[in-house]
Every structure is written in structure tokens, then in C-alpha cells.
Design a protein around this nucleic acid. Structure first.
Lengths: 109, 109
DNA sequence: TTTATTACTTTGACAGGCAGAGTAATGTTT
DNA sequence: AAACATTACTCTGCCTGTCAAAGTAATAAA
């Protein structure tokens, strides 16, 4: 399991990417992350919902309530055009960050 | 210039890597980072010295004063055996984090 | 002698992430 | 029907890493 303070700062990217594929609700995203990473990383609930609030306030995502529920009521999020642009920028940034950190980390494995 | 909150958590790695090459002092590390990244990333002084304190307390690095100065007196740091082990672990972690984030970021560039 | 550069330190604040506790609706067991 | 498990979201208060800002001090250059 990866320490979360090392993945910190990239959670916006991960969540936004998942929402960009299709509208999703919180619990679903949480499960999807565990699934795709094969449980190597799990997002904490408190963190996830804090990110939703942040992104919604910045108009990067927007919320609506779904009707199909299975327990608590689902709050779906969709990405806005602004969010798409932001995600593109995040992907570019990730490429650059990888390059930079690799500059220091390579040749040691 | 890369935002520092996206590189956050990897600064220990970068600094430790530089110290592992040879004993270094703060100002030197700061310059070296700017140089190697071609100014795409610069570490802030306050951050750098805070990291030194943290790593020294954890006995990952240790300090001594050098005699050759050129302005303020230089405080050199060397990596300890514990530090070497920690660095190895950090490199392994970095490989894993890259894999995980790439899981979400790929196919969008 | 004034200014620039080198070099380190400290304080206080901010932001992201999280533990823990809580609310509520639905499905499953007994 | 009662009890329990699961789904699903919210809120509060804390911790930690980073940083702006301000300060100290020594050497080199103008």
C-alpha cells in the first residue's frame, strides 16, 4: 500500500480523470480506485469528499442527485468544460513532474 | 516552473539523492536542483532547511561544519547507513507511485 | 564603505489529507 | 419485525509539509 502523502497533490488528477470518463458518484470512485490499483492505493472518504467540495467550488465539476440508489442517495458529479481544460493541464504537469523526479531518482534502482 | 505542491512529498527523495552522491551543504543543493532541472523547479530555502532538520532528527543524515567558506559558514550533510536504506525504499516507492498514477493519467496526453 | 552574494535560521500561516463520529436509506438475516 | 450489514454522504478538528517573510552573519566586489 502506497503512503498517501507521496501521492498527495495527484488526487485531483485521479478523481477528475475518473469523472471525465463518465459521471460518477463518490462511493463509486472510491471503489474504482481500489479496483484499478489492485488495492495498492485506497482513497479515504474524508479526503474524497473534501476534494469534491474544492473542485465544485472552483467549477471544475458539478453535482446532481441520481435517482437509482442502493442505500444512501447518490450524488453524481460531471466534469465541466473548465474541468476538461484543467485536466489537460494536470496531465501535462504530471509528465513534467515525472521527468524532473526521474532526473534524480534514476540510476539507483 | 512546476508547482511545488505537486512535487510535495518527493523532496526528501531529491535531497537525499543529492547528499548520497557526496556530502553537500544547503545552498549547494538548492543550486544543484535548479541546475539539473534547468530551472523548471527550485526548492525554497525555508523548505530545504526544514527538511534537513527533519532528516537529521530521524538520523537519516548528519551534519558537520566545513572550513572552506565563501560568505556564510557552510553546514555539510552526509547520509547515514539508515539514510541509504531509506533512500532505497524511496526509490522503490517512486517506481510504484509512477505506475499507479500512470494507470489513471495514460491515454489522455 | 557600500553593495552583492553566499549561507543559514526562525516564526507563523496555509492547505491538503485524514481519523473519527455521525446521519440516513436500503437490503439481508434471523 | 427486529437486527445487522452495506451503501452513501457530511462534518469537525487535527497533523504535517511547504513557504513567505524577516532576520543574522560572513566574505567578495564596486
Amino acid at each position: 500500500m502506497v503512503r498517501s502523502d507521496i501521492i498527495r497533490g495527484h488526487l485531483d488528477s485521479i478523481i477528475l480523470r475518473l469523472i471525465s470518463e463518465k459521471d460518477r458518484y463518490g462511493y463509486e470512485i472510491s471503489q474504482e480506485i481500489s479496483l484499478r490499483t489492485n488495492n495498492r492505493f485506497q482513497i479515504k472518504e474524508a479526503t474524497l469528499y473534501a476534494i469534491f467540495q474544492r473542485l465544485e467550488k472552483r467549477e471544475i465539476i458539478e453535482a446532481y442527485y441520481g435517482d437509482i440508489t442502493h442505500g444512501g442517495k447518490r450524488k453524481y458529479y460531471r466534469i465541466t468544460p473548465l474541468g476538461r481544460a484543467y485536466l489537460t493541464e494536470l496531465v501535462r504537469e504530471w509528465t513534467e513532474v515525472k521527468e524532473i523526479i526521474d532526473l534524480f531518482m534514476e540510476g539507483l534502482e
